[in-house]
Every structure is written in structure tokens, then in C-alpha cells.
């Protein structure tokens, strides 16, 4: 019903939530006994460590370069395999595309499982079964990041306006055709960003996995 009087402004609860969050944060700091003085004392040690970056040792340059390329290749293949797994699973984990509730649940839980398995742990499992080398690293990275990439893709697919899928349904298109003609062209930009992000983190993790595997070599 229309009226001449402006209705009262709805209450804004943001300040309340902000104070609750700050109080919680303070409680956590107090409970954990975090002392910011320690950070100050630690600065000296940290600067000593970082100062060593100023005097690099190039005596073994060819082996460094080889290992750097190996790291990149490991990350590249890890990301490629992750993309293949993610692109296959994601449509089943996206509400507008999944054939039924069971496939949806299964695909979501599969992605959750892959994300929950830390790549370091996977790397150790594969190293113990296959021995040291880039291959166990590739497999570990691909399984773990397929979980992330699959979730990103599924969410991108859900963000595509429903009308695009409807238009495909209306011409009698099937499951794969909807993915190829509606989902991918519409979500290409975000997905390329997601893939580059995963490649970026895989380069870092490839180095860490390799270093860890070296340290605990049996």
C-alpha cells in the first residue's frame, strides 16, 4: 500500500557484527598467548636469513637451471592433468548441468576428497610406491588441485545465466552439447584465471614437494 510517510530506515547490524568479530579476535590472541614482543625480537634473526639472498652462490648453476625447469615441467603437467580431471567432473558437480541428485552429491564429494588430501601427503605416498622423481610430484599435484579446479569450474558453470542452458535445452541439445556450447564459452575468462592461479600455486608446491621428498629420502 502506498503511503505519504517515509518508512523508518531498516536497522544496520554491521557495527554489532564488527565488534563481535573484533572481540573474538582479541580472545583468540589472549587464549593462544600470542606475544607481539617475540616478533620484535625475531626481526634480527629474520634479517640475517634474508641477507643471505644478497650473496647467492652460482657455483652449481647448470644443476640449478635443470632443477628449475624440472619444477616448471612438474607444475605444468600437474596442472594439465588436474584440468582434465576437473573438466570431466565439474559438470556433474554443477547444479544446472548434473543429471540427478546422486551424480551431483558424488561429484561434489569426490572433489571435496581430492581437495582434502594434502599434496605433500599424496607426494609421499607416490614417492614410496614409485621412487623419487617428477612423476609422483605430477600425480600428487594433479589430484589435489583437480579438487580445487573442479570446484572452481563447477561454480563458474553455476554462475552462467540459466537462460543460456535453457536455450540449449529448448533446441533439444544433450548434456555434452550444453557443456560445450553454453558452459565453456560463457565461463572461459574466469576459468583461464583459475587455471593460471592453479599453475602458479603448483610451481610453488612442486618446489616444496621436491625439497621435502629430498629431506626425508629413505
Amino acid at each position: 500500500m502506498s503511503t505519504n510517510i517515509l518508512p523508518p530506515k531498516p536497522k544496520n547490524l554491521f557495527p554489532v557484527w564488527l565488534s563481535v568479530a573484533l572481540a573474538l579476535l582479541w580472545f583468540i590472541v589472549w587464549d593462544l598467548g600470542v606475544d607481539f614482543k617475540d616478533l620484535l625480537y625475531g626481526v634480527e634473526d629474520m634479517t640475517e636469513y634474508f641477507s643471505r639472498y644478497g650473496t647467492p652462490n652460482f657455483s652449481n648453476i647448470s644443476s640449478y637451471l635443470y632443477l628449475m625447469v624440472q619444477t616448471l615441467v612438474t607444475a605444468f603437467w600437474g596442472t594439465t592433468l588436474a584440468f582434465i580431471i576437473a573438466a570431466t567432473v565439474a559438470p556433474y558437480a554443477a547444479r544446472p548441468l548434473t543429471p540427478n541428485a546422486v551424480t551431483y552429491r558424488f561429484a561434489r564429494e569426490l572433489l571435496n576428497f581430492m581437495r582434502a588430501m594434502p599434496d605433500l601427503l599424496l607426494a609421499l605416498i607416490f614417492v614410496s610406491s614409485m621412487g623419487l622423481g617428477p612423476l609422483p610430484g605430477v600425480l600428487a599435484l594433479s589430484i589435489h588441485t583437480a579438487g580445487f579446479l573442479g570446484k572452481f569450474f563447477a561454480e563458474n558453470m553455476e554462475r552462467v545465466p540459466a537462460g543460456k542452458y535453457e536455450a540449449l535445452s529448448a533446441v533439444g541439445a544433450g548434456f555434452t552439447q550444453k557443456i560445450v556450447f553454453a558452459a565453456w564459452p560463457s565461463m572461459l575468462r574466469e576459468s583461464v584465471g583459475n587455471i593460471l592461479y592453479i599453475f602458479d600455486r603448483n610451481v610453488r608446491m612442486a618446489a616444496i614437494c621436491a625439497a621435502t621428498a629430498m629431506c626425508i629420502r629413505p
Binding site: 537462460g163 543460456k164 535453457e166 529448448a170 533446441v171 533439444g172 556450447f181 564459452p185 560463457s186
Partner: peptide, 28 residues
């Protein structure tokens, strides 16, 4: 549905594909 065309208020074309491909969708 294969032989019933549908035209939408929001057109529902796939924006990043060219016109030709959008029309080819009718053959899917």
C-alpha cells in the same frame, strides 16, 4: 524440442561465440 524453436526475451545467445555458431546451435 528438436523441432520446436524457442525465442527468449533475453535472447539467450552465447555471447562469446559468433553469430554463425549461435545459429548452428539450432542443429545440435
Amino acid at each position: 524440442r528438436a523441432h520446436i524453436g524457442m525465442v527468449f526475451q533475453q535472447f539467450n545467445l552465447v555471447d562469446r561465440l559468433n553469430v554463425m555458431t549461435n545459429v548452428l546451435v539450432g542443429r545440435l
